[in-house]
Amino acid sequence: MAAFLEVRGLQKHFGGVTAVADALFDLREGELLSIIGPNGAGKTTLFNLISGLDAPDAGSVHFLGQDITRAAPERLARLGMARTFQHGRVFGNLSVLDNVLVGAHTRLRAVKPAVPVVGPLLEFALAAVRPAAVKAEEAALRDDAMRILSLFGERLLPRLDHPAFSLSYANRRRVEIARALALHPKLLLLDEPTAGMNPTETAEMQEVVHDLKRSGLTILLIEHKLEMVMRLSDRIIVMDDGRRIAEGLPQAVRNDPAVIEAYLGHRETGGAQQEAVP
């Protein structure tokens, strides 16, 4: 069976620096795969290469059997790939609800016809006239957005009309995830969903991601809080200096000397390691 997402030999260099060297992995449907590694290991660059925000120097990406190497991000959105961003990129001046609705953009009937000139004009006319079908669709999207927002309990529901810039950092991350879910993605890419969150908020987020996984969503996760990674992941890939240094099940990765070395450093780890690893 062809893999859901297939990454082969991806490379990316910035100037003389190699950000990603020969990334290679498969992601199966319904799986949660985590990518971990120290700062500057190339994780976010890898995300950008997969999600079309950056073009690889070499290698290929296949998604659902289609070659999506160097595909434009809007095409990937239509194919059902949604992502969140490391530092959070909500639309600051849009309300919480509007942010989530933008996530559902590709599902709108009005945006479907890709015919030049005629398509946009039709879309414009539908927006101006707003026939019953469009109203019904918008209402359905709103209901769906509310359902998604309710995944975060009472965190976002009381703030539907608040502009995103006024939200706390944690709430902005939640809005980002809600926006991604509104796309009804087949594949979800989460880049540090708990960055800047306190332990309680992190635990909540872990619950949310866990539920998403249980509902069958395929997820690629970058995360620094390793405890969360260990609990959620089916498999883990460890990156350092742009390469994969380990891959496997959470427990095995945790005790892999190469991983410990990547995090703690390359030299004189002997003593610390023997005592640290039970």
Partner: peptide, 8 residues
Amino acid sequence: QNASLALG
């Protein structure tokens, strides 16, 4: 970030 090196 590299603890072993720095502490060395």
